[in-house]
């Protein structure tokens, strides 16, 4: 082993060095600093730190707003993963079977278009649609006799409004991933199945789905990241986590602690807890999800 390393000389270090240095400076050192900071009360300006031990962790874990943000994060995941993975998957199976190429392209473009927007921009568009008095959704609902809804200010609806926007904005990317994967399914396999009289549904479930499972797993991993992370832009623009934290999530809770209330020690503790939660979810994904993926 050592001899092999010696034979390679400095080359591995030269190739890997810049990437390793960047990850140390931009990932590992900030993570270590955050961990350290979580044990102190710290002011950005005075640069003074007061030792607080595990107080910030105890305080955060006992904070009802943290529990609410944690529960909401679970709800966002539970609602958006099936929506953002399941619906694009079904649509992709349908779209590859559209024979008319122009219509197929038109559908793909229309469905993918919202994905090019950033979350805050998408949210601004929806602010107008959600307006309880002059918004399109209530106008449409009113025309069929539905009562007007307070999409963003009703505590039981606000989180679902954010979910609608997140779904609309993000599902196009997964659709594109599935379409690309389905395009790579060998035609001789599907042709053989068709000649054998396999129905389109059986063909999709038993042949195409296993063949695109790496893409499915990739979409699942990235969707979880989007739901845990990027959705915060939509939360901020649409509801600011309200009304009374009912649409907040863990990352928004962290943002509020750190950058609205300027409690950096507490925010660091929240960041460490979020990192632990995300690491657990990712571990579970690879532990239980990847075994169903066929890379052959």
């Amino acid at each position: 082993m050592m001899a092999a390393w010696r034979r390679l000389g400095a080359s591995p270090w030269m190739f890997a060095g810049p990437a390793v240095a960047a990850s140390i400076v931009f990932v590992w050192l900030p993570m270590a600093s955050t961990l350290g900071l979580s044990f102190f009360d710290w002011s950005l300006l005075r640069q003074e730190a007061t030792w607080r031990g595990l107080d910030h962790y105890r305080g955060t874990l006992a904070n009802p707003d943290f529990h609410l943000a944690l529960g909401n994060t679970g709800l966002y995941l539970a609602a958006l993963i099936p929506l953002q993975v399941g619906i694009p998957l079904v649509l992709a199976f349908a779209l590859v079977r559209v024979k008319a190429k122009t219509i197929g392209r038109l559908y793909r473009t229309a469905l993918f278009a919202p994905s090019v927007l950033s979350f805050p921009v998408a949210a601004v568009v929806w602010l107008w649609l959600f307006n309880p008095t002059v918004g399109f959704l209530n106008t449409l609902g009113g025309s069929i006799g539905l009562a007007p809804q307070r999409w963003l200010s009703d505590p039981s609806l606000a989180i679902w409004s954010v979910i609608i926007v997140a779904f609309w904005k993000s599902f196009g990317l997964n659709l594109l991933i599935f379409l690309a994967a389905l395009a790579n399914v060998p035609t001789d396999v599907t042709e053989a199945a068709r000649i054998d009289g396999t129905s389109a549904i059986r063909q999709a479930i038993d042949i195409e789905l296993p063949l695109i499972s790496p893409a499915l797993f990739f979409a699942l991993v990235t969707t979880i990241i989007v739901v845990l992370d990027e959705i915060v832009g939509a939360v901020d623009v649409l509801t600011e986590g309200g009304p009374y934290r009912t649409s907040s999530n863990l990352l928004y809770f962290l943002y509020e602690r750190g950058f609205r209330h300027f409690q950096f020690g507490e925010a660091a503790a929240v960041a460490v807890l979020i990192a632990a939660i995300v690491a657990s979810v990712t571990w579970a994904q690879f532990q239980f999800g990847e075994r169903h993926v066929h890379y052959d």
Binding site: L127, W128, F130, N131, P132, T133, V134, L152, S153, T239
Partner: peptide
């Protein structure tokens, strides 16, 4: 409603 919604309406 929220303040931006109120102003728009």
């Amino acid at each position: 409603m929220t303040i931006p919604e109120m102003v728009a309406a």
